[in-house]
């Protein structure tokens, strides 16, 4: 009787051990989280950018009698479109002191105006048209005309290169 009880106890102990082993097996064979990560630096460097677009790359004036008598051509309008991520200043100047043509027509015979500022003679020294801060395609219309002198402006082809519009740091 005692021996039979001892066998039962041993069998129960063995079963408990096996259950423990079984459960351990289930737990152990489940993957343990071992996630991994990598920290990556993301970098970019923004430069100073000023961008200027002009609506016309060249302009033609063909003055008629009326304009010659009036002493000036009909005005044309160029649109300067400014984009910048920093402060800027827009200037205008002539690249040459004289036109090429039948006579040395001076650069000052080119007149410009911005925003009702009054007509100003172009010179080879840059003159500020407008300044500003960060801008996205802000449009600035600039009117241009040519002084005419019926006595001096003899017939012929006159060429002036170039009217320079510049966007620069203040």
């Amino acid at each position: 009787m005692y021996e039979k009880n001892a066998r039962c106890v041993k069998a129960r102990s063995f079963i408990i051990i096996l259950i423990t082993v079984f459960l351990s097996t289930l737990v152990i064979t489940s993957p343990v989280s071992a996630d991994s990560e990598d920290i990556t630096g993301f970098t970019m460097t923004v430069t100073e950018v000023r961008s200027l677009e002009i609506s016309a790359s060249s302009a033609f004036f063909v003055p008629g009698v009326r304009e010659l008598l009036d002493g000036e051509s009909s005005p044309q309008t160029w649109v300067a479109s400014v984009s910048a991520n920093v402060d800027w200043v827009l200037t205008i100047r002539g690249a040459e002191s004289f036109w090429e043509g039948p006579w040395d027509k001076p650069v000052s015979d080119i007149l410009w105006e911005y925003d009702g500022s009054g007509w100003l003679a172009l010179s080879t020294e840059p003159v500020e048209i407008r300044s500003g801060g960060p801008s996205n395609q802000e449009a600035y219309p600039i009117s241009v005309k040519v002084n005419l002198d019926i006595e001096q402006d003899i017939p012929g082809e006159y060429y002036y290169g170039y009217v320079v519009l510049e966007l620069s740091s203040p």
């Binding site: 991994s36 990556t40 630096g41 993301f42 970098t43 970019m44 960060p134």
Partner: peptide, 12 residues
């Protein structure tokens, strides 16, 4: 505006 921009990204 001009300058260097950066941030750390974590891939896990």
């Amino acid at each position: 505006s001009p300058g260097q921009y950066q941030v750390d990204l974590t891939f896990r």
